[in-house]
Amino acid sequence: MTESYKPSLQPWQSGEARESALRVRLNRFMGLIQRLVSNPTTVMGLAVIVSMIGIAIFAPWIAEPNFPDPYQMPRDWGAVRKPPGTPGHILGTTNVGGDVFYGVIWGSRKSLQLSLMVVGSTVVIGTIIGSLAGLLGGWVDEVLMRIVDVFLSIPELIFALAIAAVLGPSFTNIVFALSVVLWVKYARIMRAQVIQTKQNEYVDAARVIGDSKLNIYLRDILPNSITPVTVQATLDMGNVVLIGATLSFIGLSEAGIAEWGVLVSEGQAGIASGRWWASTFPGLMIFLWALAFNLVGDGLRDALDPRTEGR
């Protein structure tokens, strides 16, 4: 009756402490992190994200906040259109005297806000609606998915643009517009995942035990369905900033705020006359932000792939 079993010891495991649920779960999480950081591009992406978030958090210490509203670009009318390297304006100034460095630093706060708010709300809405459709099936599924189809049939940028245009130019409206547009993707993914997961035999096993439907959803279906949503959310953290910047660029945000898209938009007029810096630095930030989240998203997808999860 004794079957030999040789556990594979991971470096962070010590022989004795293995026997606790918390420790085992921690080990599993550490295994995921280990797989994640074994990929150099993911590490690069993570490094960029961490430094960007660091910049956002420590913005008041890096660049002195503008009074009364730190998200408004400070105006230095004495130093208009100065190139990078000017004392006091390390990355130059815009044609209205805005400090590009200030915009870049405080813009990361705006971007982080945008990403977190949009992705957070869309993931929650999408997961709930997708789960409902997948679990209940029948006409509920049919109705919800037709609504999703309608949303998906309009290109997301144009749709967001239309909503933001109707509501008027403001950053909050961009957040709202993007949330309205992007939840459908998660609903789609979640529905497909739930339908697949609920056919697993372990769900039947839980039903035979007599567990409640809510418990089965929370313990069996949700945890085993959420992975692709996590990956998509990570990718969207970058994409949202990209689309948000686009909307800001075409003027759907308040003018003069420290937001990368607004800065690129306001600086682009000067590019032809050689004042490249006002657009380039915020543009670079947008690029790095989107790239970093895409790299991490890809890394996460590989690391969470059940096929690569060691047996």
Partner: peptide, 20 residues
């Protein structure tokens, strides 16, 4: 419900992979 239990063919599929 308590008195009628079931064991499935595929032991891998019938155990939630995320549970200890």
């Amino acid at each position: 419900r308590r008195n009628c239990q079931m064991v499935f063919q595929d032991s891998f599929a019938s155990l939630n992979p995320r549970h200890l």
